[in-house]
């Protein structure tokens, strides 16, 4: 009987109570599909990604798409104003979303956004970090872990080199950035739990 969709990948958190669970689900799917396609297009542009097996490309994307979207959409979370911008462009306050059922995940998203922003990374750095997020050799179901690991190491080396070049006096940024990876895993797990709860009673 859930009546609200607090994920900003919707046009609005409010759901028409007259609509069937199926049509709500269809609309939600239509809303986030373009963002998922963009992640796939991004993955295709990572040098070496297309050389991985088809199975592993799908496995990495299945496991990592949410984490990539979290990094890409930190701009939706206004840490200062405590608002979240939905796909329609309308902003909703944290308090409003909490009253609609948003819980710990929302707070954790704000924490993550705040910490990532504090690193003051440029577009190229964020992009390379996002590639590192996606190409993770410890995702489940990979058939050629060694290939993924080799690509992951190449990307991490490139990220370290870029950060060192751009922030010569702040090498700790690279370490802090890598420490964001387990934070993203944690967000991913929380999000998965929400999805499971939602799908059970659409």
């Amino acid at each position: 009987n859930r009546m609200h969709l607090v994920c900003p990948m919707n046009t609005s958190p409010y759901v028409d109570p007259q609509k069937s669970g199926h049509s709500i689900w269809e609309e939600f799917s239509m809303s986030f599909t373009p963002a998922v396609r963009e992640v796939v297009e991004f993955a295709k542009r990572i040098p070496g990604f297309k050389d991985l097996s088809q199975h592993d490309q799908v496995s990495l994307l299945k496991a990592g798409t949410f984490e990539v979207l979290v990094v890409r959409f930190t701009s939706l979370f206004d840490v200062k104003e405590r608002t979240v911008t939905f796909l329609s462009g309308r902003k909703y306050s944290v308090d409003a979303l909490r009253s609609l059922g948003a819980g710990d995940l929302l707070n954790s998203m704000f924490d993550f956004t705040e910490k990532l922003r504090a690193l003051n990374l440029g577009e190229e750095e964020i992009s390379l970090f996002t590639a590192v997020v996606l190409v993770s050799a410890d995702r489940s179901g990979l058939e050629n872990v060694n290939s993924v690991e080799a690509l992951q190491e190449t990307l991490i080396r490139a990220l370290r080199s870029l950060i060192t070049k751009n922030h010569p006096n702040e090498i700790a940024i690279f370490t802090k950035l890598l420490l964001k990876l387990p934070d993203l895993r944690s967000l991913n797990n929380m999000h998965s739990e929400q999805l499971l709860a939602f799908k059970v009673q659409p």
């Binding site: 799917s29 986030f32 088809q54 490309q57 299945k62 798409t65 999805l195």
Partner: peptide, 27 residues
């Protein structure tokens, strides 16, 4: 519904989006 990615139909979207790339690789 033990797999959230399957719940969302994510795999289907990903496979379709990758398809051009995959066809290219199969050639």
């Amino acid at each position: 519904f033990s797999d959230p990615a399957s719940n969302l139909g994510l795999e289907d979207i990903i496979r379709k989006a990758l398809m051009g790339n995959m066809e290219e690789k199969q050639e």
